[in-house]
């Protein structure tokens, strides 16, 4: 196993993680296509995954990686359900515009 990560290197990874997260978040807020919105959530998952692995490397253990397995699990489940929902909504009304579904509000 390689040398554990120094705090300086960790900062690099965390900065990258934060930037990716915010980009994903902005994408989620600005894009109106349901599929791209879900893609952006996947991007945020990626950002979280980088932070996990980097912290794991900093602490010199594999728990970060184990957590990533769980993240992958949730991401896969989320993708399956989200896409199923998209397909269902699209069948009901042939549009992927998130705003077109805003009458679901209470």
């Amino acid at each position: 196993m390689t040398e554990p990560l120094s705090i300086l290197a960790l900062n690099h990874y965390l900065l990258l993680s934060a930037v990716l997260f915010v980009i994903g978040f902005i994408g989620f807020l600005t894009r109106r296509n349901l599929i791209i919105m879900f893609l952006c959530t996947e991007l945020m998952f990626q950002a979280a995954a980088i932070a996990m692995i980097a912290f794991g490397a900093y602490h010199g253990n594999v728990q970060g990686q184990v957590f990533l397995i769980f993240i992958l699990t949730i991401a896969a489940a989320e993708a399956a359900l989200a896409l199923a929902l998209v397909v269902m909504l699209y069948r009901r009304r042939p549009t992927l515009d998130a705003e077109k579904w805003s009458e679901l509000k209470g």
Partner: peptide
């Protein structure tokens, strides 16, 4: 780079 080879490949395969 972070010596997480397995996760790297898992990521590519799964994602």
């Amino acid at each position: 780079q972070l010596a997480a080879e397995f996760m790297a490949f898992a990521l590519i395969i799964v994602y």
